[in-house]
Design a protein around this nucleic acid. Structure first.
Lengths: 228, 228
DNA sequence: GAATATTGATAGTAATACTATTATTTTTGC
DNA sequence: GCAAAAATAATAGTATTACTATCAATATTC
């Protein structure tokens, strides 16, 4: 799993941190506990001072790793999308049939996240929760164009692009592969949010998952049979 | 248009404001200029102090209308969704064919917003821009469950519900009408955002609109012909 | 064991997000 | 047209946030 780990590390833009949090135990603790604290109190209430108190460290020490909490969120999001991308590529790698390949990709991207023990200091289940609740806040900012120029969103963009290509491989005539791919990724986060907080606005529940909904949607849209 | 105006006023939960901004010229100015200022500097940089300076009024006076900027955003969002709901109901009212009715609803909900002169102090075009950029921030908060209990999201919920019913009217066997409806509403905002800031992640541009994409998606998903 | 890097502690600043009080202006009712 | 009431403005003040700067204490490494 070392190769995986490295490939994921590569995905994170160096401008997102001042000092690489993977390079020290304090850095890892900052990442590890920030995920838990953001989940507990929400991104708006989260501060470096509170995080410092929680990990018995100092506010000023955290500022030596991340410029501000916004950059930390972008870092966590890059890690998350890099991890998703890796799993998608890994899990679809050997599949030659384009329909089966797309189907598997959708499954990986929309299914409930389970813990991955390859990364000891990152709790993927909780990270997924904060991506559902907070990811939009990382790009819905006035500075988005400049930040995009800095490459802060490159991992997520590459994921959409890859998924779009898989859609094209299934149906070259379909006119909206990019829009469909971005709708699936964003829509998945949204359906999980609705399931948790607005169950009346979704058909997803304990039995019906976003994977069911989006797999069905893709197959109907691209005019395929469920069995490939 | 007075009836319309009233019906839209009714839609806004009274708990969202301390004093009804429609009841005075200062209140209207607060709403009018807050839309423009949030659009200009973004919700994070927007403060009541800055708004006060802009309208030659006082921070403390604005606090007499709205508890904080979060409630103001919820107010603006309720107004927006109330206005969309009204237009959707109005424009689909006489249509008896369910397919044509759904098609018209999608059109109203996904098309580019144009100014509505019935509401002099609200610039719908700019309001639509801030909904695209800021709406998610109104519900992606830790307090969402309590706020929902207070009825702050009722207008948007009713809209999803209505759209879902129109989907059911077209295809009773389709298993995910709520998820499809919520995906369309949320996805429309997202596609407009991508079109503006991440054109590589969407097929929408000057010629292809979110209306094209979502109309096509709905028709394929519900197995209909484009001509009804 | 000295030099260097890292972390911690403390202090300080400007801005934010308010609340409270009092003064001034506007509105309304008679 | 004037008094009473309501609305708005001005000012001040508090706690928190989002940092920056400085210096002391601790690890690390050469």
């Amino acid at each position: 799993m070392d190769v995986l780990m490295q490939s994921l590390k590569i995905g994170i833009n160096e401008k997102l941190y001042i000092k690489d949090p993977e390079s020290s135990s304090l850095g890892k603790k900052i990442v590890e506990e920030s995920i838990l604290l953001i989940d507990e109190i929400g991104f708006e209430h989260f501060t470096f001072k509170k995080l410092g108190a929680r990990i018995n460290s100092n506010e000023s020490s955290i500022y030596r790793y991340f410029e501000n909490k916004h950059k930390l969120l972008l870092y966590l999001a890059s890690w998350y999308w890099g991890w998703m991308e890796y799993r998608m590529v890994f899990d679809t790698n050997g599949i030659s049939d384009p329909v089966e390949k797309l189907s598997k990709a959708i499954e990986v991207l929309t299914q409930n996240v389970e813990e991955d023990n390859a990364f000891s200091h990152i709790n993927e289940v909780v990270l997924n929760k904060i991506i559902i609740n907070e990811y939009s806040k990382s790009y819905l900012v006035k500075e988005v164009n400049d930040e995009d120029k800095n490459g802060y969103f490159i991992v997520c963009k590459r994921l959409v692009s890859r998924l779009s290509e898989m859609i094209v491989a299934v149906d070259k005539t379909y006119a909206y592969p990019l829009s469909l791919a971005s709708t699936i990724l964003e829509g998945t986060l949204h359906q999980y949010f609705l399931k948790e907080h607005f169950p009346m606005l979704t058909n997803c529940n304990e039995n019906v998952t976003p994977t069911h909904f989006f797999t069905d949607l893709i197959f109907r849209t691209l005019n395929l049979n469920v069995n490939g």
